[in-house]
Design a protein around this nucleic acid. Structure first.
Length: 1035
RNA sequence: GGGCCCGUAGCAUAGACAGGUGGUGCACCCGGCUGAUAACCGGGAGGUCGUGCGUUCGAAUCGCACCGGGCCCA
């Protein structure tokens, strides 16, 4: 197939690279199944589909796994072990796990190029990232600066926001007094949960409009003056166990701004003595705790921004491992969280109150260490400078669903800040910036060749530590060394759209294909890959790298909760495949809900899909024995099949054949239309529904007798041709969604000259000329009739096996009458009725009941009301109804003369005669007369007998073509008479008997024959003994 | 705290953009069928359409608020 489409119109798909963890979960499976389905469809449409898979193989998660294997605890262990060997271990880990995952994807029937996937660790891929960074540099978008970042003190690196995992943690909750400069015993009161950030305090923030109070507070005979937001005073003082207080003065935050104070830790942290602490205004201050916020620009994002704005010191006395530096005074060398206690002690009388708090705190997602915020030197891409362009590219892209782009992604990008692309780790793409220590000159290299040329080196693997050894002579005479950082892994995958087609090393493919026609990922990738790719591509090419995006949901458990190991609610794709097979998993996932909604996994629904697939399998298998028996071969052109015979014979074919042909073409057109909008749930439901309702429940039921015809007949041939056509068409329709079952059915049905695989066929869109919507409407009515008759029969307790005399249909319109006149035989057959009468006026067998209306009778007749009621009930309701309809009045002879009843005294309701049962169908009412005549009774019993003989054949495991002899004893004389009168031949023929003898007495039986199976049956309360044997001559 | 999406029977879903008697499947109960058979088919019962307020002659559908779930951000 792929060969066939080579050189045709290309369709450029880019695979969002999964991270090489080594195992896939349901969400990953969903993701790839959606991709595979859509890719297969486009291949069938004759497009040259670029289906290269990809893997994201760098990054901290792998480093942490390897560290764990080696029993390492921190960066020093890695450095001691040797970065080179460490990197090799990481590489091995990534490659081996990539292989495992490729096998898992292949097992799901994912038909993508896993033999040659793009990998973020190959030199050409790394060059793609270098090239992009150089572009950013050239455009002035690459910046280096101090920023507060999430920092893992164990991994000793900045980590991305997305790498922070939150859960509840208990921390101290401290209220601290900051002494106001020059005012003894007067303090600002702040609140913090991170005592270790107090040595870095430089300011206190207040809201400009909040009202703050100066209170004199009494405690153990001492008086202090405290500044606290007015509405919080009482609460805070209670926590501090003050015995009494009074408010002396009010000031707004604005008035308070500029107030100078000193650090309570000035003695312990000498550096604090140089800092000019003051009160500043900020927008993020909230009215809780004390209404005053401790500001440490070295340890908080908001703090940092405020610091820049207010010109505050960015003081960060904490190193990469989370230890205080020499600037941390007496705390130097201590790990920050361990220093908490000592800091609290050092606060002494400056501590107003100490409580505990349980709150959400961030942790490193891989090593679970609580993170800290640290101002560090990092590399950034200045997103705000290209934001407008990014937003306009979002609008130019087609999103499925529309709101994924116009609302969700748009809003995310609108709020986007600078993108921190640097990490202080080992296993990643090295940032290609060389710096001269002497003159601070920087060079950014876009390729290894450029670097090798400048350095006179021969670098082949651009990973650390090899790349770190390359030095470049600087124009100042000094030597340039690479900066130590590596890239954030999101920068890696952002290159995918051009790296996967070999750019920048090779240009042809890029010029031909880029940007991508289509990408597809989960909603979490809004901030992930959708974003990183758009950012990188806007930097490099000023445009979006993709034209169409389909965003899918998340796989949740049955309760709509996230699947997680700790909750024990994880369902693995392997588990589903093991129980039901790949195609069932695929069809379940596709049909369960719209792609962009979250999937609540539900085993029951999986097994429902499984049942439908099983029915498909049964439908496919059912005609095979007859076809084989008859040596059926579909009409063909030489040894290749095509639907010419169907098209040519369509006019002559029976209604049901033309109907199912029309249906499958209608369904096919609908599937094609749904595919255009990626309504995969609608289309898969449409296919499954067709199999269940149209093919299995209706067509196969109707066509069965035609397959059992003994002799060759056109009717049988049409049935064979039709079902063959349906199965061939269905295979093609199913190929993208259930590739295995489609292939299995196809490979058995295909002719010698047909393509060897269903996956080599082109997509079929359905043909208008094979669709007869009139016929579909009429057949729909007959189906509705079929159900109504079953309904009425059930009410009348008449089994379907027993024929009924007349079924009357009161039609509400022409269309219904037409349906019955054109498909009369089919309707009779389905209803098992001798005749069907279709009328458009009133049904004359309906009886009426007169119900007295006492509310009116009382006032009209007074005392004799109850007697009138009785008279009405006893009267001939039909005569009464007719007379009232005619004359408006009805006269009854009452005890005191004639009584005149008018329309207001009585209400008429329909009454069904005893043997007639009704049911509603579309645009009509069906009346079934279940009255038995001798003839109907005889046929009913005959069918009862036949069914029991068939049951016995089955017990003996007889083949369809084997003949039998039957002996039956029917003691009931009425039944004996019915069965022996005229139905014996019919029985013999139906059950394939060469001889049938029915006796009334057991003593009449031929005792010389030993019956292979002999048993008593209860038929409607009467006992019948039946013995059967295989006929001699059929053996 | 903010953005987006979702909430319909025991469970899973359609209907919502374009307001007008809430459909379907599974499970349940009852029945049928028996040349697809460790299958298949029909019927019945089951709903405060998350809650409240509003718009309207009329709201599952439109608006607002709240509650619950998911993804993302802070």
């Amino acid at each position: 197939m792929k060969e066939q489409n080579k050189g045709k119109k290309p369709w450029f798909f880019v695979d969002g690279p999964p991270y090489t963890t080594g195992h896939i979960h349901l969400g990953t499976a969903w993701n790839k199944i959606l991709k595979d389905t859509i890719l297969r469809y486009h291949r069938m449409k004759g497009l040259d589909v670029i289906d290269r898979a990809g893997y994201d193989m760098h990054g901290l998660p792998i480093e942490v796994r390897v560290e764990h294997e080696l029993g390492f605890e921190n960066k020093k262990d890695i450095e001691a072990y040797g970065i080179g060997t460490f990197i090799e271990r990481c590489k091995q880990f990534a490659i081996s796990h990539k292989e495992i995952m490729s096998d898992q994807f292949r097992a799901l029937g994912i038909w993508m190029d896993f033999d040659n996937p793009y990998q973020t660790i190959t030199p050409d891929y790394i060059e793609a990232a270098w090239w992009a960074l150089k572009k950013a540099h050239e455009k002035g978008l690459l910046e280096r600066g101090h920023r507060v970042v999430n920092w893992c003190p164990r991994c000793e690196t900045a980590i991305a926001d997305s790498e922070v995992e939150y859960w509840d943690e208990e921390d101290p909750s401290l209220f601290v007094k900051f002494p106001i400069l020059g005012k003894p015993d007067e303090y600002l009161v702040i609140w913090t949960t991170t005592p270790w950030t107090l040595p870095a305090n430089v300011a206190v923030a207040v809201d400009k409009d909040f009202v703050y109070a100066r209170v004199s507070a009494e405690k153990d005979g001492k008086t202090e003056y405290l500044w606290i937001a007015e509405s919080l005073v009482e609460d805070v003082l209670k926590k501090g166990r003050y015995q009494d207080f009074s408010i002396l003065e009010h000031k707004t935050g604005k008035e308070l701004a500029g107030t100078r104070y000193t650090s309570p830790l000035a003695d312990q942290v000498p550096r604090q003595k140089d800092i000019e602490h003051r009160v500043v205004l900020a927008g993020f201050v909230e009215m809780d705790n004390t209404g005053m916020v401790h500001i440490a620009p070295g340890h908080g994002w908001d703090d940092y921004l405020l610091g820049i704005q207010e010109g505050l010191d960015v003081f960060c006395p904490v190193d990469g491992a989370g230890h205080y530096t020499a600037e941390g005074g007496i705390f130097a060398g201590k790990f920050v969280r361990d220093a908490n206690e000592e800091i609290v002690k050092s606060l002494g009388s400056f501590l107003l109150a100490r409580k505990k708090i349980v709150h959400r705190y961030g942790h490193c997602w891989r090593c679970k260490t609580p993170i800290i915020y640290r101002a560090t030197e990092q590399w950034f891409i200045s997103i705000p400078k290209i934001k407008e362009q990014m937003l306009s590219e979002i609008r130019a892209t087609t999103w499925y669903p529309e709101w994924a782009g116009s609302a969700r992604f748009h809003d995310f990008v609108s709020d986007a800040r600078d993108w921190c692309i640097s990490r202080q780790r080992y296993w990643g793409i090295p940032i290609p910036v060389w710096e001269c220590k002497d003159c601070n000159k920087q060079m950014v290299f876009g390729t290894m060749a450029e670097l090798n040329q400048a350095a006179g080196s021969n670098l082949t693997d651009p990973h650390r530590p090899y790349v770190d050894q390359i030095t470049v002579p600087c124009s100042c005479g000094g030597t340039m060394h690479r900066v130590e950082d590596i890239f954030d892994v999101w920068f890696d995958s952002a290159m995918a759209s051009w790296a996967t087609i070999g750019f920048p090393a090779k240009k042809e493919m890029f010029e031909k294909l880029w940007p991508a026609d289509f990408i597809l990922e989960g909603q979490d990738q809004t901030r992930g890959w959708f974003y990183s790719q758009l950012g990188a591509s806007t930097i490099a090419f000023n445009r979006s790298p993709y034209k169409q995006v389909l965003m899918h949901g998340f796989a949740l458990d049955g309760d709509g909760k996230k699947m997680s190991k700790s909750l024990g609610n994880v369902v693995s794709p392997e588990e589903v495949v093991e129980k039901f097979g790949v195609d069932v998993l695929r069809l379940y996932i596709l049909s369960a809900n719209a792609p962009w909604e979250d999937l609540k996994f539900n085993w029951e629904s999986v097994s429902t899909v499984n049942r439908t697939i099983n029915i498909l399998w049964n439908v496919y298998r059912f005609p095979l024995p007859y076809m084989i028996l008859d040596d059926f071969a579909p009409s063909s052109m030489g040894d290749t099949w095509n639907p010419d015979f169907i098209t040519r014979s369509l006019r002559e074919m029976p209604d049901e054949d033309r109907w199912i042909i029309s249906r499958i073409n209608t369904v096919t057109r609908q599937v094609t239309a749904d595919m255009k909008e990626y309504n995969l749930h609608r289309l898969s439901r449409g296919i499954l529904n067709f199999v269940l309702e149209d093919l299995s429940r209706w067509y196969v039921q109707i066509v069965r007798p035609r397959m059992w015809l003994e002799e060759d007949s056109l009717d049988k041939k049409y049935a064979y041709e039709t079902i063959y056509y349906c199965m061939r068409t269905l295979c093609r329709l199913l190929a993208p969604y259930a590739p295995h079952i489609a292939e299995e059915i196809y490979s058995n049905l295909r002719l010698e000259g047909d393509p060897v695989s269903v996956h080599m066929l082109s997509w079929y869109e359905g043909e208008e000329r094979l669709i007869d919507s009139d016929l579909e409407t009429r057949m729909g009515l007959i189906r509705s009739f079929d159900e109504a008759v079953a309904n009425a029969r059930q009410a009348g307790k008449r089994k379907l096996r027993w024929p009924v005399g007349t079924v009357t249909v009161v039609a509400k319109n022409e269309v219904v009458s037409k349906a019955f006149s054109s498909m009369y035989n089919l309707a009779c057959q389905r209803a098992n009725a001798r005749e069907i009468l279709v009328i458009t006026d009133q049904y004359d067998k309906i009886l009426w009941k007169a119900e007295p209306i006492m509310k009116k009778i009382g006032p009209s007749f007074g005392k004799i009301g109850p007697q009138v009621k009785k008279l009405i009930e006893e009267a001939d309701a039909i005569a009464m109804r007719n007379q009232i309809a005619e004359k408006g009045v009805y006269a009854i002879a009452g005890p005191e003369g004639e009584i005149t009843i008018t329309t207001e005294h009585v209400m008429f309701t329909e009454v069904m005669p005893d043997n007639i049962f009704s049911a509603e169908m579309t645009d009509a009412t069906v009346f079934v007369d279940v009255t038995l005549t001798a003839d109907l009774e005889a046929e009913g019993y005959t069918r009862e007998l036949i069914r029991r003989i068939q049951e016995m054949r089955k017990q003996l495991n007889l083949n369809v073509e084997e003949m039998i002899v039957i002996d039956a004893i029917v003691q009931d004389s009425h039944l004996f008479e019915l069965l022996t009168q005229s139905w014996q031949d019919a029985i013999s023929k139906e059950v394939r008997a060469t001889a049938l003898s029915i006796h009334q007495n057991g003593s009449d039986r031929d005792t010389t024959t030993l019956w292979q199976l002999d048993r008593d049956w209860d038929i409607e309360g009467l006992t019948v003994t039946i013995g059967i044997s295989v006929a001699e001559n059929s053996r």
